[in-house]
């Protein structure tokens, strides 16, 4: 059973993500994580400010429950199913991270420089994390979906819009890492 505690290879993880999609389709639902953000805004009262949020959130309760499950899954996996400190990166990646001042590769699941306890006392890090989330939230609603809704379910359903969105995800990611990271960090 030691394999459970090791990081799971892509050929195990990818098929299990496809299985998640199939289970949700079989349940008569869809696979999309970012729409929960809209539902949460609706619950918080965003309907008073925009018709976009005037939806019956109870129709989305099932997806909120999936989201709660994902949180529980994160807790279980990190506390009981893991024995390695973090991703085993190649030397060349570690070297590139070093030029950005990120030296926690191999020691932690997430960079300590961004997600350690000190993050809360560094205004620059708070700003970067908030802006990162802001772009994800705004972009996923503008594009009508995220990695799960477009890249996995949409492309599986041969949707050209999902392919366009996914190419956009990659263009944005490449711009951030190659053009903006050297300026930001």
């Amino acid at each position: 059973m030691d394999w459970i505690l090791e990081p799971w290879p892509w050929y195990v993880s990818g098929p299990l993500i496809a299985l998640t999609l199939f289970i949700l389709l079989y349940a008569g639902k869809f696979f999309g994580m970012s729409s929960n953000m809209r539902t949460l805004c609706t619950i918080a009262g965003a309907g008073k400010t925009s018709s976009f949020f005037r939806i019956d959130w109870k129709d989305q309760k099932w997806n909120l429950l999936v989201m709660v499950g994902v949180v529980i899954g994160g807790f279980i996996a990190s506390h009981f199913l893991t024995n390695s400190p973090g991703p085993d990166l190649q030397e060349k990646t570690i070297a590139k991270l070093g030029t950005l001042g990120i030296t926690s590769a191999g020691e932690a699941y997430l960079p300590i420089e961004l997600f350690g306890k000190e993050a809360f006392s560094d205004p620059k890090i708070i700003f970067l994390l908030f802006v990162g989330g802001l772009l994800v939230g705004f972009g996923s609603r503008y594009a009508g979906g995220c990695t799960s809704g477009h890249s996995i379910s949409g492309i599986s359903n041969l949707q050209l819009p999902s392919l366009i969105a996914t190419i956009g995800f990659f263009i944005g990611g490449l711009l951030m890492v190659h053009l903006l990271f050297p300026i930001i960090f």
């Binding site: 594009a143 995220c146 990695t147 969105a165 956009g168 263009i171 944005g172 711009l175």
Partner: peptide
């Protein structure tokens, strides 16, 4: 929307 999402991702 996709590019904005990618920047944040």
């Amino acid at each position: 929307g996709g590019i904005i999402f990618g920047l944040g991702w």
